[in-house]
C-alpha cells in the first residue's frame, strides 16, 4: 500500500466517523515487542488514560528492566530509567522531589515481584502517591523465558524444565492481593488483556489507579495478566486463550481494594485496613 493510498483511506468519507484512533501521548514509534505481545495494548491504555486525564505534560514515567526497559521510548512524557526492581524506590524519590508531578511505574513480574518486591511493597505501604502497573505474563521475557515469581505450578520454563514445583520453587506470587493488604494502598486490582471485554475493564481500572494518585489517596496498583507468545511457544491467539484457561483460575480478576469515594465497599469506608 503506497503512502498516498493510505492517506486517502484515512480520510473520513461523508457520514463516516473515526471511532478508533491513536492519541498524542503515545508516540508513533513501532515497539520492539514481539508480534502478539500485549505490552502494546497496555501501553495504549496507559497513554489514553493520561491523555483523557489531561496530565501528560506533568507526568514522569519510571521505567523498569526487562522487556519493559524501553517503555519510555513509546510515551510522550518525561522518562527515567530505574535499576532492575527499583522503579518504586526511584518513583518515591521523584515524588518527594516533585510533589506536583503525576508519576507512574511500569514493571514486569520479575522486576516488581522478585528483585523489586521489597521496594514495591514498601513504597506501597508508605502510601506513596504513585501508580504502578504490573505486567504479569508468568515468565522472564527479555532474558529468554526463565521462571518468574508468577510462573504457574507445572509451567515449563528454561529454568524449570519439568515444570514449576511447589516443593521446590514455591507457588506463584499474588501481588495484587498482597498490595491490597497494605494500608498505604488506595487501589489494587487485577485485570487481563486477553479480550475486548477484559481490556475495557482494564482501562477503567487504570483510570482508578491514576485517580487515587491525583486525589492524594495513596498508592495505585494494577496488575495486568498478559501473555508471552514467544517464551510460551504459542501463537498469539492461543496465548491469549491461555490467559483465560490457565492464568485467571490462579490469578482471579477483580478489585481487591478501592478507597475512592464511590467505592462500593462499605466495609472499607469504615476503616478496616485490609480489603
Amino acid at each position: 500500500m503506497d503512502a498516498r493510498n493510505l492517506e486517502n483511506l484515512l480520510r473520513p468519507a461523508e457520514g463516516e466517523t473515526l471511532v478508533f484512533d491513536t492519541n498524542p501521548v503515545l508516540n508513533e514509534r513501532l515497539t520492539h515487542y514481539c508480534p502478539g505481545c500485549l505490552h502494546g495494548i497496555a501501553h495504549r491504555l496507559v497513554s489514553e488514560t493520561l491523555h483523557e486525564l489531561g496530565v501528560a505534560e506533568r507526568t514522569i514515567l519510571v521505567a523498569a528492566v526487562g522487556c519493559a526497559t524501553f517503555t519510555y521510548d513509546y510515551f510522550n512524557v518525561d522518562g527515567l530509567e530505574a535499576p532492575h526492581g527499583r522503579a518504586c524506590a526511584v518513583a518515591t524519590g521523584v515524588r518527594r522531589a516533585r510533589p506536583e508531578a503525576v508519576i507512574f511505574t511500569y514493571q514486569g513480574d520479575g522486576d516488581m515481584a522478585a528483585i523489586g518486591m521489597a521496594e514495591s511493597l514498601h513504597a506501597a505501604n508508605r502510601g506513596e502517591r504513585i501508580t504502578s502497573f504490573f505486567i504479569n505474563n508468568t515468565v522472564y521475557g527479555m532474558t529468554g523465558g526463565q521462571m518468574a515469581p508468577t510462573t504457574l505450578l507445572g509451567q515449563k520454563t528454561t529454568t524449570t524444565h519439568d515444570g514449576r514445583r511447589m516443593d521446590r520453587e514455591g507457588g506463584p506470587v499474588h501481588l495484587a492481593e498482597m498490595m491490597a493488604g497494605l494500608d498505604g494502598v488506595a487501589f489494587a486490582a487485577r485485570c487481563a488483556l486477553d479480550s475486548v471485554k477484559h481490556v475495557r475493564e482494564a482501562k477503567k481500572a487504570m483510570r482508578k489507579a491514576f485517580e487515587v494518585q491525583l486525589e492524594g489517596l495513596g498508592f495505585g496498583f494494577l496488575e495486568l495478566l498478559s501473555s508471552c507468545p514467544t517464551n510460551w511457544h504459542m501463537d498469539p491467539v492461543a496465548a491469549s486463550k491461555h490467559i483465560v484457561e490457565a492464568m485467571i483460575p490462579v490469578f482471579p480478576l477483580g478489585v481487591f481494594k478501592d478507597k475512592t469515594a464511590d467505592s462500593p465497599s462499605v466495609v472499607q469506608k469504615e476503616g478496616v485496613p485490609h480489603a
Binding site: 473520513p12 495494548i41 475486548v196 481490556v199
Partner: peptide
C-alpha cells in the same frame, strides 16, 4: 465498526471508521 480489532491490536495499527 465495533473496533474490537483495534482494541486488541498491540501495535495500534488499525483505524476504524463507522457510518451512522
Amino acid at each position: 465498526g465495533c473496533a474490537s480489532c483495534a482494541v486488541m491490536c498491540p501495535d495500534v495499527a488499525i483505524r476504524v471508521f463507522r457510518t451512522a
